[in-house]
Design a protein around this nucleic acid. Structure first.
Length: 470
RNA sequence: UCCCCGGUAGCUCAAUUGGUAGAGCGAGCGGCUGUUAACCGCUAGGUUGCUGGUUCGAGUCCAGCCCGGGGAGCCA
């Protein structure tokens, strides 16, 4: 007997004999002598309806006791449905119960509406719900789409390390990786913790970004990207921050800021367009239940050129805006959430690419622009942020400083210890090239694509301050 | 970390000026029906987040703590 996934059974021709396996969503009984079972196996949004006639040998003893969450195998013939709501259904000739739900009254994911806050507490069962099944499939499609996108454009996928002992990433608070006895660590003569005695012979942490490492492969393979987990030990409690999140970081040799701005726009549009095609069922659900108008919004993003705007012009625009802001707007200050939201949600109503930020608010590795770029009153660097409605910053990138003397001046200016950057500086000493890249927050992309409000609901097992269950 | 809101049945929420803790959904049982967010009836289900305080009496008032949500900062 042919075992079909539900997604394939729903498209199969009536008359086929098949086996289906999955979990019961609901069971409804009819005194006409049959029961209806909604079965899902996660392979698509829709469940399939199984019609179980009362002459099944285990009908009274087992079928009538099936409840939400039970796992079963059903054998039978696919037939055209006599009811509305589905084209085909399985007319069962045998139903085998694989796993019972031991107490239906306390089954945590019962057949009712649950809040996302509650479902977060049962993350091991929430994938069985409509919403989290759809999120999981969209997440997969976007992840594989990213690899397809870069592979199609001759980018090589580079695995940058998760554990890093280079103390130069500088993108946020880091988690320490150590095998020292936390209660009684090795100490130096002056009473400090002696990391020479630690596993790596030095202080080590979880990476906050693969960028510096991927730049080295960029300086050899030309077009590369990383896609892996990154870690920030910031005490952030918001709907768009995680302690563990996944980041996509492409890097282009012989490329400049304009090149990565174009790449970022084309990547977002390609991914969203592909998603609407490949996961039409799940996207229709998000459009109907999670964010009405979602699909139109995404279509608009796909069809409209992103607005590119120098930081200096954005400041002028915000200064002349009628809207009252809580935080000051002044050249040299970083933009606050309210300013970014105003630009992308109210003024332009589309994704906005801000470029050429003041040097004083950006990282050491960003390339210094020529004096007077965009008519700026101070020094700027070739940085870019892609802002999208509803999320804010989804991508941050820059052209990297390839000139050793300028890089060293920046390190000195920011009082960073130059010796920590020896291998990064080597790239500028040995055949340096202009290059540029960006980082895309994968979970923020999923939020943007689905309309899901809380970032903790677009990753299977969220890690956040005081949250590491499961 | 800061500001605001919340914690009552398996889940979502009610409970008047402090006075015997209730509904819907879910679950169980029965009825009806090719059903599909099914419908109708009955039943079970509670240490009101924790600790202490005020009071004749606290879900309600006070203090501390824990947990959750939203916003801000940090960023992706």
């Amino acid at each position: 007997m042919q075992w079909l996934m539900v997604k394939d059974a729903l498209k199969a021709a009536p008359g086929t004999q098949v086996t289906l396996k999955g979990w019961v969503r609901t069971r409804r009984d009819s005194k006409a002598g049959l029961s209806f079972i909604q079965l899902h196996d996660g392979t698509c949004f829709d469940p399939i309806q199984i019609v179980a006639p009362s002459d099944l040998p285990n009908y009274e003893a087992e079928v009538l006791r099936l409840t939400t969450g039970c796992s079963i195998e059903a054998v039978g013939e696919l037939v055209e449905s006599r009811g509305k709501g589905q084209s085909v259904e399985l007319k069962a000739s045998a139903i085998k119960v694989v796993g019972w739900v031991e107490d239906p009254d306390t089954y945590p994911a019962s057949a009712k509406q649950h809040s996302f806050e509650y479902l977060r507490e049962i993350a091991h069962l929430r994938a069985r719900t409509n919403t989290f099944g759809a999120v999981a499939r969209v997440r997969h499609t976007l992840a594989t789409g990213i690899h397809r996108f870069f592979d199609d454009r001759e980018f090589y996928y580079v695995h940058t390390p998760i554990i890093t002992a280079s103390d130069c990433e500088g993108a946020g608070e880091m988690f320490r990786v150590s095998t020292l006895d936390a209660l009684n660590p090795a100490k130096t003569e002056d009473g400090q913790i002696d990391f020479n005695e630690d596993f790596f012979g030095r202080e080590a942490h979880l990476t906050v970004s693969g960028q510096l490492n991927v730049e080295t492969y960029c300086s050899a393979l030309s077009r590369v990207y990383t896609f892996g987990p990154t870690f920030r030990a910031e005490n952030s409690n918001t709907t768009r921050h995680l302690s563990e999140f996944w980041m996509i970081e492409p890097e282009i040799a012989f490329g400049d800021l304009a090149d990565v701005a174009v790449l970022a726009e084309s990547m977002l549009k390609t991914l969203l367009d592909e998603l609407l095609t490949r996961r039409a069922d799940d996207m229709a659900f998000f459009d109907e239940r999670i964010e009405p108008g979602l699909i139109d919004r995404l279509r608009h993003v796909i069809d409209t050129p992103f607005k590119m705007l120098p930081y200096t012009d954005a400041i002028k625009l915000l200064e002349s805006a009628k809207k009252k802001f809580e935080y000051p707007v002044k050249w040299g200050l970083d933009l606050q959430s309210e300013h970014e939201r105003y630009l992308t949600e109210e003024h332009f109503k589309q994704p906005v690419v801000l470029i050429n930020y003041p040097a004083q608010i950006k990282a050491f590795y960003m390339r210094m622009n020529d004096e007077g770029t965009d008519g700026a009153p101070g020094r700027t660097v070739a940085a870019m942020d892609v802002l999208v409605p509803g999320i804010g910053e989804i991508i941050g990138g820059s052209q990297r400083e390839e000139r050793l003397d300028v890089l060293d001046a920046r390190l000195a200016e920011m009082e960073l210890p130059i010796e920590n950057y020896w291998w990064y500086r080597d790239l500028r000493r040995y055949g340096t090239v202009p290059h540029a890249g960006y980082g895309l927050g994968f979970e923020r992309l999923i939020q943007f694509a689905t309309g899901m409000q809380n970032i903790r609901d677009v990753i299977p097992f969220p890690r956040a301050p005081r949250q590491a269950e499961f």
